[in-house]
Simulated scan of single mutants.
Amino acid sequence: MKIIAGLGNPGSEYAATKHNVGFMLVDALADRLGIDNWQDKFEAKVAQGVIGTEKILLVKPLTYMNESGRAIGPLLNYYKLDPEDLIVVHDDMDIPAGTVRIRKKGSAGGHNGIKSVLAHVGDEHFSRVRIGIGRPMPGWTVVNHVLAPFTDEDKPKIKEAIAYLLPAVECIVTEDVDLAMNKYNPKKQKKKKVVEQVKSQEGGTDRVAE
């Protein structure tokens, strides 16, 4: 079994906020797979389903973001799963809104929800699916930013990112995270070298500008 946990805050007042993109993706995956058997378990909303031949457990912690691990850790223990069986979906301020990144391990990178998961799981070797929400606007605190809804400009970017990531999450489950990273992470484009003529009093020289 794989656990796919989206991070966020419970309650309608938080449903459309940037911090809740993890919940949004898990809900979209449930819709895609026709999963609606939600129940409360270990301080989380959980629902079981299948991707390919693999059983999955969709999880939305009810502990609020900063205590996400309090729900996820006990679920891993209850089902006798390893950290590698966990996929966590969360927001990321360090990448532009709508940009996606998949990682197979790593530190919390300043994300309090991931800090909590690391503390309760006790291992960094779980997959992360990150959805960019961008940096706060000038004069805004981090809290103001993550607890605010997306702008009209960013809403379609987030919707597109979630749709793009649904098959990526399925790939992690049915294949592995390395294949998903290779297939779905944005490719880094090599800088194009432009040769420009720079004429000086001593004569023309070629300069390579990147």
Rank of each mutant, 00 (worst) to 15 (best):
M1T: 13
K2D: 08
I3V: 14
L7Y: 11
G11Y: 11
G11A: 05
S12Y: 05
E13L: 01
A15N: 07
T17I: 09
N20M: 11
N20D: 06
G22P: 07
F23A: 02
L25G: 03
N37I: 02
F42K: 13
K45G: 01
K45C: 03
V46D: 04
A47L: 03
Q48Y: 11
G49F: 00
G52Y: 02
E54M: 04
L58W: 02
P61N: 06
Y64H: 12
N66V: 12
S68K: 03
S68M: 11
R70A: 10
A71L: 09
I72F: 04
G73T: 09
G73F: 07
Y79T: 05
Y79L: 02
E84R: 14
V88H: 05
D92P: 07
D92K: 00
D94F: 11
P96V: 14
A97C: 13
G98C: 08
K104Q: 14
K105Y: 00
G106T: 06
G109S: 13
G110D: 08
G110Q: 07
G110P: 13
H111W: 06
I114Q: 04
I114F: 03
V117D: 01
L118R: 04
E124F: 00
E124S: 05
E124W: 03
E124H: 02
H125C: 03
I133V: 14
R135N: 08
R135S: 13
V142A: 15
V143A: 15
H145Y: 11
L147R: 14
F150N: 08
F150H: 12
D152A: 15
K155S: 05
K159P: 00
E160G: 09
Y164V: 02
L165N: 05
L166C: 04
V169N: 04
E170P: 01
T174R: 14
D178L: 13
A180T: 12
N182K: 14
K183C: 01
N185L: 13
K188I: 03
K193P: 00
V194R: 12
V194G: 00
V195R: 11
E196H: 06
K199V: 15
V208D: 05
